[in-house]
Design a protein around this nucleic acid. Structure first.
Length: 430
RNA sequence: GGAACGAUGGCAGAGUGGCCAAAUGCAUCCGCCUUGAAAGCGGAAGCCUCGCAAGGGGCCGGGGGUUCAAAUCCCUCUCGUUCCGCCA
């Protein structure tokens, strides 16, 4: 959530920042929030005054009783009873306003970072680095889509995956399955120098999925286990962000860095028929996520670090890649500033988004109530959260199959993965 | 799934209608002492919110109720612990 106080003290600034996203309705919601907030404060002040009087009278009753003055006690009780009536109705109104304001605020997006590039949508995202590792041209034998190569090699069996679970579920087998696991191991090992490995739950509560901004707006995108009130996580960002929810951290504990390898589940509602072949878009996939809970002053540098770490893993795999920055029109609800890493897949002839690194400012942390205490100072502050995909398996896996395909149809195992693949150097054509 | 007990400040833990924002201990911060530290001694200090301020209001797991007045009584939900049952 954005800070209501900022909306009070600098309404024009908030308005201008949000306007950069190019969604007129956001500004309507913003006005609604400002109006509700003003009304709420009016009512709350009035309610508080009534409460003060009731509190004073209650004390007076106790004192009068003790002094043996039954008549005075009785009089104070009568007055207090009357005040109680109006106090209750004011309190009810205040509660209503508060929950209405909360509902509106939950759906208002984060403010873009001033340096985030302006733009109307995906097509306006600028390339900020690369292409790197990009050959001048690709030989014909690399112009084969991964689903054809992998199926022929017997390492991808989507027919059976579909039999088991339905469309958009994949199944890797043999060295294909091993390579999927190897990719995760590589990503974990490359970040183990600074990140604590977590194995979080992959089914989470509604509160947890709300903290990251996935609810209430994007309920249709997540798999729900309604009977138990649980949701399947779309990314490890969800449980990792809530790791310290409701806690007050010591400033010296920041930045807190954690990582996790989990399955991720996405309904991909509305994308039926798109990218359904191969592994470009699936309901369930594996990913290693790295996440930091940082002091606001550390956040900008942390964003750079996360980008560098995610980029490093792609680079060590020898894949052609580039980095784009997400423009204001394409920025996700919770996002303050984001970079995507894209890998080129010659078989599909497409740039594939394989990693997204983002800074959420205090937007998620306010929802999750993650605070920190400055050493030697009173009070608490909201922390900042950042995260990035250290490695998302399916698209990287697909890009390897396409980029490392040889003329005989076999696929060379990238050097960096060999230690995790029992020494296999090639996935042989049978 | 059944039963019992529990949930209080950063942590531990008293408190069973008004004198309670709440004892005490640990941790924290400031000072004294010390070459420095520890120990010791003295002091400060919960969180949220409204307000320029003075000050006000709220918060004892969440929600509801009883009462002039609730951490305290009642209902309900959630979570935890232990025992039984089941089980990788």
């Amino acid at each position: 959530m954005i800070d209501v106080r900022l909306l009070r003290t600098d309404p024009d600034g908030v308005r201008l920042a949000l306007a950069r996203r190019g969604q007129p309705d956001l500004l309507v919601q913003l006005d609604k929030a400002a109006h509700l907030d003003a009304r709420l404060r009016e009512i709350t002040a009035e309610r508080d005054e009534h409460r003060r009087q009731v509190n004073d009278l209650s004390k007076a009753v106790g004192l009068a009783r003790k002094a043996g003055d039954a008549q005075a006690a009785e009089a104070a009780m009568a007055t207090s009873r009357e005040l109680g009536e109006s106090e209750r109705s004011l309190a009810a109104e205040s509660d209503e306003l508060q929950s209405a304001l909360h509902d509106v605020l939950l759906r208002i997006t984060n403010l873009p970072h001033p340096a985030a590039p302006d733009g109307g949508g995906e097509q306006d995202n600028p390339v900020v680095k690369g292409p790197i590792n990009m050959p001048a041209s690709f030989p014909e034998h690399q112009r084969v889509p991964h689903w054809e190569t992998a199926t022929a090699l017997g390492i991808l069996d989507n027919e059976r995956g579909t039999k088991i679970s339905g469309a958009m579920f994949t199944l890797q087998r043999g060295l294909g399955a091993t390579m999927a696991r190897a990719l995760c191991q590589l990503a974990l090992d490359r970040n183990a120098d600074a990140f604590e490995e977590i194995r979080p739950p992959t089914l989470v509560s509604t509160a947890t999925l709300t903290a990251t901004g996935h609810l209430p707006k994007f309920a249709d995108d997540a798999f729900a286990i309604e009977r138990d009130g649980l949701w399947a996580i779309p990314t490890a960002e969800v449980p990792l962000t809530s790791l310290y929810a409701g806690e007050i951290l010591d400033e010296t504990a920041l930045p807190a860095r954690v990582m996790a390898h989990t399955s991720c589940f996405r309904r991909e509602a509305g994308s039926a028929g798109r990218d359904t072949r191969g592994m470009l878009r699936t309901h369930e996939f594996d990913k290693v996520e790295i996440l930091a809970i940082a002091h606001p002053d550390q956040a900008a540098a942390m964003l750079d670090e996360l980008v560098a770490r995610c980029e490093g893993t792609i680079a060590v795999l020898g894949l052609p890649y580039r980095i784009i920055e997400i423009c204001t029109g394409d920025l996700g609800q919770s996002h303050h500033r984001s970079f995507d890493i894209e890998v080129y897949a010659p078989g599909c002839d497409r740039w594939l988004e394989v990693s997204s690194v983002s800074w959420f400012s205090d937007y998620q942390a306010r929802r999750a109530d993650i605070r920190f205490r400055r050493t030697g100072q009173k009070g608490t502050d909201i922390a900042h959260t950042l995260n990035g995909s250290a490695l998302a398996v399916p698209r990287v896996w697909a890009a390897i199959i396409e980029n490392y395909r040889q003329a005989d149809g076999s696929v060379v195992v990238p050097e960096a993965l060999r230690p995790y693949m029992r020494g296999a150097t090639v996935i042989p054509a049978t």
